[in-house]
Design a protein around this nucleic acid. Sequence first.
DNA 1: AAGCCGTGGCA
DNA 2: TTGCCAAGGCT
Length: 322
Amino acid sequence: MSQQTTLAVVVPKFSEFVKHLPTVYDLAACDQEILRQLWSGLGYYARARNLNKGAKFIVEKLEGHFPQSYYEWLKIPGCGSYTASVIASICFNEKVACVDGNVVRVVSRLLGLSEDVWSSSGKSAIQTYVDQMIPEERPGDFNQAIMELGATVCRKSKPLCLLCPIQKECLAFAHNCVEICPPKKPRRDTVDVELFALVFWRKATDTVAIAHRTKGFLSNTVGFPLIPATEASEVKQVLQSLLHLQFLELSSKFSHNITHHRISGKVLVVQELENPSITTESVLWRELGLSQSFDWVPRSVVASKLSTSFDNKVFKLFANYK
DNA sequence: AAGCCGTGGCA
DNA sequence: TTGCCAAGGCT
């Protein structure tokens, strides 16, 4: 959970998570829908799927025995060099450095590195450097200490150099270049995106279609089908031709950011009338070019099925209209 | 190896 | 309001 996610957000989620799934066997056997609910609001949903994969790997291939080394943990799905180093050093006293964003910053300043610390080669060099510094005693505590130093003293903005225990050794402090060490992480320019979220509403049973999205934003998550705004007119034409349907484009837009995408969205409510024709769901889906499986869910329980913040926004607009 | 992926919190 | 970004991993 803590991968690329603020700890303050993680902690309460983690408590709830382990309360429901206290063992690796529970996690391995966990139903995807339950997993989605427990992960709801945390983002980067591939992490939740990998966590489940990793648990299955341990239960099925390792007979429930946890790996006991950095190298073996690296083979677990969702477990990269950072996570493997955390587990190996804290749980098994292995002398391997944890290189997260904090550690990159601390070392960048300590050594006065003002360029290329975020690339894979840059982080690899930092890994090698800190690996050499790990003491024999309590490697895990050492790793956590550097990370904590980065989080509290050697922080990104307004570092507390006057309180820093390694101020005397810090080249950035000595050369008065703490401001440019480390350089900012390179980031993609923000891209504006317009899209439509489709809310299929079967009035007769008061049910709503929830799709398993297979491509684009929020791929491999469950929620409302999404289409680029550029395809909206085409979809509307198809909808026009299907006489048992009527659609309504809600006037209010919603906005949402996904990584470097600034999304402006509108909700297209597609209502199935009281007396539907024989057109089947699969035909409807095929004609709309939505290659996604879906379930019809009672409107009253849709909210409990949704797991992304994006879908929550969409459903709120729909509920407001309804 | 660079590009990709969600969200909440904070300045 | 807007931008920045976090105890990264996968492809």
